[in-house]
Nucleic acid binder design. Structure first.
Lengths: 342, 342
DNA sequence: GTTGTTATCCAAAGCGCTTTGAAAAACTTC
DNA sequence: GAAGTTTTTCAAAGCGCTTTGGATAACAAC
């Protein structure tokens, strides 16, 4: 059933039927009701491709699945971020489109999606410290929003991010206050902007407390359970092992815990751990008392906000780029305890 | 730059340009080359909405994000399944569309996507034992494929699934052979078809060995770390606790391990654990020797296959529904050891 | 009853592509 | 060189919607 058939059936013009359904004022209430009911009854829904052609808007937003280049790892954060964005999209009658990039061809994919008018805007996930995609998107005039930031990018652009530096500084300070001195950092890949910022927070706190930075205690890898385990295991075998770990993800932290237990130690009592918790729905950090002391920030919430910023921008392109800094909260759980200096 | 402009620029008709770009034979090689180069040079890409309107095909496949109704949990498997499907889609020039369902309105969403001609077909994820969506999709004539199966559905439909019953039966037998008798099952929600089948496999093995089924050792909940921990903790506090656990997901198994260690026990030596491993990219089960003995089946691979089945069906609607049963392999890791009867 | 307003409705153009049916051009063949 | 074939190109219709610029009907005012 299409517009033409429906209008013939009602004895009205396509114009009138279209206007009635889209809530324009130039149509009497009687006919509007008649039209709306006929539409429902005959199960009419407008062809989105035709609508899109006529209006010039796709009502679709594009995402590119951030496969980690090195190991083809799907970011575990992905599902929850998407769920958040999707919620905002559907409230605004947008659909969500996916594409995936082959080997760093992400900019190409974005361009293709936009040039083919498949999408009205795109979300850039997982920005690196140096992120040429941002300039590319700006130059192409594609509306976009970044989940995270890119330190090497100085022009204005819209983003949502957690204050990673601040949260890791605070958390490291917390460990120092507890009496820890040898504090290890198990970080994500440091070409990722968030990882670089977390390292900076860690370093700032160490420096402020006049503690030396020991490269052997600073590890950077993909954030998997196995990598976390591996790094922590090696460090715990050192002559003077760390007494505390700052860990960039819950998944890695689970690996760290495994290494601690394998070493015959007890978390909190012997070794403290603070993890970053993205508040993933399938990996909640305990129920009442959290398993891990953590810096927590909901990635799902970030998804909702990112979506809203982008939609606002699409609707109002001359708007100045909106930015939104989220603060991670520090929740105290069962993975931290006093260190040797206390 | 659109077709009209490009054709005027070349001094050719839109017909010829269109045909040249789409590889039709009725155009000389010389002009084809000329056209293709001009298109590249002027950065022309056809408007997908116009193409879609003209061809009647969207070249898009729809997915509905399976939020677990009860707790709004994003399935951790989601990302990897999508990555697999996406790979196949992009090889076949399909894009992927997402929608999310509000409170069981999934069938409505599928219908809307298809009626509005947003998609050419849909993937149904997370089927329950009773799954009215399958009948709905069939009745609506929407091409679809199911990731998993639905036991209450007897008509033919295309699917990809792991032989869950078989793999859980074999794994349970493996524990019995090791000398375990009190074997617990930590399962997902049993209205989910896969969970029901896994339970059946477990029960079959127990029955075949003349072992009683103890309801206190059979737990069913959302597959989170916390739920796994909770269940295992309670069971380990029983008078005669289980000596082995069959666990439906790696994430729950991590919780089980935590409970085992909190109880002062050692995995493998005191308590054995077998987990189902979806081979998620960010949660690899160890490197050389797996952490957990596991029934393993790559969900990413399942995504690739599901996508192919659906695309075949879209291209050839009168094809009989294809089905594909995947076999989970049993990998022996460091979480199992001899039980009391050995 | 004529004029001026306002509330309703409509015909037709346009969005950017594909595809049908036909024409023009280029070859063959005799 | 005319007739027949094949190759190459094109004009125009159509996909299903929105929207512009009227037209018509209904009503009020004089």
């Amino acid at each position: 059933m299409n517009l033409k058939e429906l209008s013939e059936l009602l004895g009205l013009s396509q114009t009138t039927v279209s206007r009635a359904l889209n809530g324009y004022p130039e149509v009497s209430e009687k006919t509007r009701i008649r039209v709306v009911e006929a539409a429902r009854e005959h199960n009419y829904s407008p062809n989105s491709r035709a609508t899109g052609l006529a209006t010039g808007r796709a009502m679709v937003i594009g995402h590119v699945i951030p496969l980690s280049a090195r190991h083809e790892i799907v970011n575990p954060v992905f599902g929850d971020f998407v769920a958040g964005a999707l919620q905002t999209y559907s409230q605004n009658n947008y659909d969500m489109m996916f594409a995936h990039a082959v080997d760093g061809g992400e900019a190409e994919i974005y361009k293709s999606l936009y040039n083919r008018r498949v999408v009205d805007g795109v979300v850039l996930q997982g920005p690196k410290v140096v992120e040429p995609r941002i300039k590319a998107l700006r130059d192409l005039g594609i509306p976009f929003v970044v989940h995270g930031r890119s330190s090497a990018e100085h022009g204005p652009y819209p983003w949502v991010d957690v204050d990673n530096t601040r949260s890791f500084r605070r958390a490291t300070e917390f460990l120092i206050d507890l009496g820890h001195r040898r504090i290890a950092l198990i970080n994500g890949l440091e070409d990722m902007d968030f990882a670089m910022r977390r390292r900076k927070g860690y370093e700032d706190a160490m420096a402020a407390a006049n503690l030396p930075l020991n490269p052997d205690l600073m590890f950077t890898e993909e954030m998997t359970e196995v990598a976390g385990h591996h790094a922590a295991r090696d460090m715990l075998r050192m002559e003077t092992p760390p007494t505390a770990f700052m860990v960039s993800s819950m998944i890695s932290a689970i690996g760290v815990r495994r290494a601690i237990e394998e070493a015959g130690l007890k978390m909190a009592r012997d070794v403290s751990v603070i993890a970053h918790d993205d508040d993933l729905s399938y990996l909640k950090n305990g129920q009442d008392v959290p398993i891990f002391t953590a810096t927590r920030s909901s990635v799902r919430h970030a998804g909702e906000i990112a979506a809203q910023i982008l939609i606002d921008r699409i609707n109002n392109p001359q708007l100045a780029p909106q930015t939104r800094m989220l603060e991670a909260e520090i929740v105290v759980g069962r993975s931290t305890g006093p260190g040797p200096e206390r």
